[in-house]
Structure formats: C-alpha cells, structure tokens
Design a protein around this nucleic acid. Sequence first.
RNA 1: GCCCAUGUAGCUCAGUAGGUAGAGCGCUUCCUUGGUAAGGAAGAGGUUCACCGGUUCGAAUCCGGUCAUGGGCUCCA
Length: 638
Amino acid sequence: MINITLPDSSIKSFDEYPTGMDVALSISEGFARNCVAMEIDGKLLDLNTKIESDSSLRLITTKDGDAVEILRHSAAHVMAEAVQNLYDGALLTIGPVVEDGFYYDIDMKPVSEDQFPAIEAEMNKIIKAKKPFERKVVSKAEALEMFNDNKYKKELIEALEDQEISLYQQGGFVDLCRGPHIPHTGMIKGVKLMKTSGAYWRADQSREQLQRLYGTAFFDKKELKEYLHLIEEAKKRDHRKVGTRLGLFSFHQEAPGMPFFHAKGMEMWNVLLEYWRHEHKAAGYVETKTPVMLNRKLWEQSGHWENYRENMYTSVVDDEEYAIKPMNCPGGMLLYKTGSYSYRDLPLRAGEIGLVHRHEFSGALSGLFRVRAFHQDDAHIFMTPDQIESEILGVLRLVERIYSRFGLGFHLELSTRPEKSIGTDAQWEEATNGLKSALDTYGKEYLINEGDGAFYGPKIDIHIKDALGRTWQCGTVQLDMALPERFDLTYKGADNEKHRPIMIHRVIYGSIERFFGILVEHFAGKFPLWLAPVQVVILPINDELAPHAATVSARLSEHGIRCEVDNRTESLKKKIRDAQINYTPLILTVGEKERDSDTLSVRTLDGNVTMGLSIDAFLDKVLKNIRSRTLEGISFEK
RNA sequence: GCCCAUGUAGCUCAGUAGGUAGAGCGCUUCCUUGGUAAGGAAGAGGUUCACCGGUUCGAAUCCGGUCAUGGGCUCCA
C-alpha cells in the first residue's frame, strides 16, 4: 500500500502505485483537470509518473506560479514540432522558458514575422489534437543514435553526465528534454509567437547563427489578451515616442547613442538633480567634480586599461594618450589623495554627477535606456572597515527614500566575483561578506547572481519596478577593496598608524538619462506637478486678454512656477485640447471675469474645472504641492 | 560587432507592375474674438525620397555598399 501525504497533511492510501493523476482524481475530477504536474520531495515530475513509495506530494495546478513555466516549456515543444512540420531541414537546438514566455533556437533559414500566422496555425492544430506528452528514458547511446542527424542535440547529449536520458514525445514528435510537461497539448489555451532574432549557438559569436523564435503561452486566453494589452500599453508609453512628442529630448545621427536634451527636458533634468542634491546633502554627502578626460597612466593604475579598454574612447593630445572616462572612480581617487585623513574624517561621502562615455555595441543602443554618453549620480564613500555595514545600510535607506518619492518599488540582487577581476581572494571574501551582512540587517529579501560582480568588487544591484510592473536595474552599490590599494589611499587610525580605507561606489538614479526615460514611461508622460516640464499653461479666451495672461504668467513665474501662455489665434476648445494632450497639469483660462475680479479658472488634467479661485489661494495650494514633491494631484475647491 | 527589419515634409504615414512626389497633424497669413478636449479659408515647406555607387532612355521604387533607427544576440548604468 502506498500512502500519499498531501500539503494539508491529510493522507491518501492506494493499493497500487498511483500516478499523480490518480491522486488528483481521488480528490475530484474538476481538480484533476486543472493539474499540470506534481512535486515530490522538491522534484517536479509529470502527472503520469507512477509513485512507488510513500511520499509527500504537492499537485501543481494551473493557478500555481510554477505551472505557467511548465506550460511554456511544453509550448516550446509544440512550436518546435510546428516548425519542423513546416520547414524541411530545420534543426532544433535548445528551447528554454524565459521571463514572459519561451524561445527555441533553431538552425534554419531566417524567419520573418509574416511567417508567424502559418506557424501559429500549425501549433494550434497540434494543440487541438490534445496530444499527450509522454516521457521516455533511453540510454545515452540510443539517444545519440536517435538524434544522429542533429549535431546540436548530439552535442547536448554528449555533454550530459547521466547515462539515462529522458525524451518527451507528443504524437510523432520527440525531443530531448528534462521535463516535466503538462499532461497534453490541449492545455495550452492562449499561445502567440512574439518575435524572432538571430542568436549564436551556445552564445558564441564564432559558432553557428541560429534563428531564435520567441513565443508566449497561457492557460487562459484572457491572460494572453491581458499580456498583449500590457505590451500595447508599454508601446504607448515608450519614452522615445512620448519624449519626442513632448519635446524633451532627441537623438541625431551625428552622435549615435548620445542624447540631446531640449529646454523642457532640461527643466525636468534640473528638478531631478535639485531633488538629488537635497537628499544627499541631508544624508551627509559633499559634491565634487572630476575631469572627463584623463591620462592613460591613470587608467593603467586603476585597472580599467586592462579590464575595460574595449569600451573606452581614447585620444592623443600632445603625444600623450588620454581616455574619456567610462567611470568616475579613478578621478575620485586623485581627489581623495589631495588630502590627509584621520579616522575621525571618515566616512567621507563624496558625490559626483559625472559624465561618462562607454563605447557600447552599435546594436545595443536603445533610446535613453542604453546610450554611449550618460551622467551617473555617482558617489564614493571612503570608510574604515567597521563602517561597512552602516554605510551600506545608509545607502540602501537613501535608495528607498528616493525611489519611493517617484512611486517606484524595488528589489535587490547581490553579485559576486566574476572571472575577470582584480584583487585577492581574501579581499573578495571580506567585501562580499560585508555586503551580505548589510543586506541581512536591512531585512529585505535579495537574489544572488554568482559571478556577476564588477571586476573590482562585489555589488548590490537595485532593480526598480515601474507602473507597468516592469523592472529596470538602476542603482548599484559596489564595494571596492582594490582601488584604495592600487592608489595607496590611507587614513590615520586612532593608533596613529596608516590604514587602508575601504571604498563604496554607488549610484541611485544610475544613469540619469536612463532614469529619466524610465520616469517618462512610468508616468506615461503625465508627470506629477513638481516634475512636469510645464506646470501651468495660461489660455486667454481672446486676444484682448493677452496682456492679462502675461501678467498672471509673470506672477506665477516669480514663484518659480514653470508656465507658458498660449496666445495662438485658436479657439479656446482647441487650446484646452492641446494643453490636455501635452499633459500640462494645470490649465488656467483667463477672461474678463477673471481679470476684473483678479481670480483664476483652473482646469486639472482629470478635466475638473474650478472657477473664481483667488490667485493667492491658487499659489498657496500649488506651491505647497510642488514643495512637498508629492505624487498627489491637486484638487481645487473654493 | 553579429542576425533580421526599417529609413519619404518638423511629426505620423501613403506612394506594392521603375516614368521625374502625396495626406493628416504642425507651421505662416487672413477671417472668426471664443468660456472648458479639434471654428473656417488660403499658403509655405521635400536642395526629390538617409548617404554613396550601380543597372536603366528613365529609380523613392531594382542591385551593392555606408550610416542611422527598431527588435534580438552580447554587454551593462
């Protein structure tokens, strides 16, 4: 007899070895219909696997978070079969699940999106046929024989350590796979191909170029619809579109990857930095500035020449080689060395809005999100070893404070030593442990990315989450025990001996350009009042009111309010519409009534209108809102 | 850098048997002098279709190259 313990601790007994499906059916038929796989002792298995010993079992239903990954993996097999049916000679390689779907890399002729409908139709045929997924186990030799005509699969099989290799079959299609899979193809209710691209076999540029087909799948057509809607929504918010329309920035062929900020974009830029300076001053930072171009010798000393050279722009001046800085730290080192420090001077927190250039691959450039020239809201914190934890905590708290100002959530990831790196094992260990203990004290959960650190130290990356739930890496906190060594930085300890300070590099906005782009998409161009490039637009109801509009404008400008007057000979309706579609937070219409009574008529972006508001009352509310840098809109009532 | 796609007026885009460029928005002028999401009319605007070269009697349309942009690979703030 087999006893199966369910998650609620109840036990079901079976006379014969039951499959997961049998267990599910013993609960109810409806429940069983929604089961996709099972977990025994932490291992995911197919539902039709026989359970041959007493076990604790968790049935995975379509509602569970991990179910959709199993589904997508199965969908990848279906796509692979469809492609094989349609294109002779297509060789399958690998087809994993990724964040929002799956892909399959296939050695075949380039595929374009107009071939998608045909592939999707073929996939839907397979889905409709409700083909069961069947697991087969064969020996390595048999597997090699079976995939004799596919060099990629053979390479994969040869690399496997197990002598037993599992295969999955749906109908006549067999693929090498660890599994598990959903019971049958019919459970895939919503499937769609998303895009194609080239990809190298094993991500190696020197090897075969494959076609990567991306798709996504859901248990429910409605979920697919919602997902597609989200993508549409994201497209509408695309900062490149919105930023162009609102006149914030532009790009030009003459400087690929290097944004031009227009007057309105600069208004926002300055507001962002003003806020940044406000918070950093309060957190005990000073602000510094170092040159953009520095001698090659400095980069050799810092290790950048050796580790980062392919990304650096260089120039020869007076027979000396210079490099344009890709990072601010070496300049910061020189700055530190101009002084002499006591342990009492530490921690020293030196901020710098530094303009850096990095020669990214031309194909990697993308709007403000990936550029070649950008400003980092950098800071270097020099400290004693026993200040590591409290300083990192301080940075994390500052990060939280600043992001929440924009309504952005975030999560943390710790990256450890990469292959290409400088410094000793002991230094890396001490640094990594320092970050870990700070993270533990901070208390928020974090992921670990092994081998993803910077070449000079481990780091904590901070990924923000925007209004659409998308995540972006912005902030990073990097501990560096190598540069202070290379530049022989010291401070005088209480023991009157020289000691080596430890250094943190950190950014919060990260790249100001990218953060700017994220904000455009996060707010979809409808910025909160304190950030809006134009806060108030004033609409005279006819030409005779133009002088009065100018008077009002001057009064608001006196208080630092960013305002414009729309004096075009257009109808009031038209001007209102234009102000609305430009997302101007406050629209003032002025006519005789307002002029004669010295009042204002205010329209907010939500379309609410308040008439007969005194200018003082308006100023009071607006200035309070701006100064508090709130995300809240204003509502006016008399 | 690699693969695929795209590149026409300030913006969005049409021009798909190769015969010497169109629309809407925006802009200018005039009329309208308006009360809360598009009033009306006229006009200017492309050194001719990203750039260079080729095929052709003739190219925005075909071919090659370059550059840029977009989606990926890779990398990363």
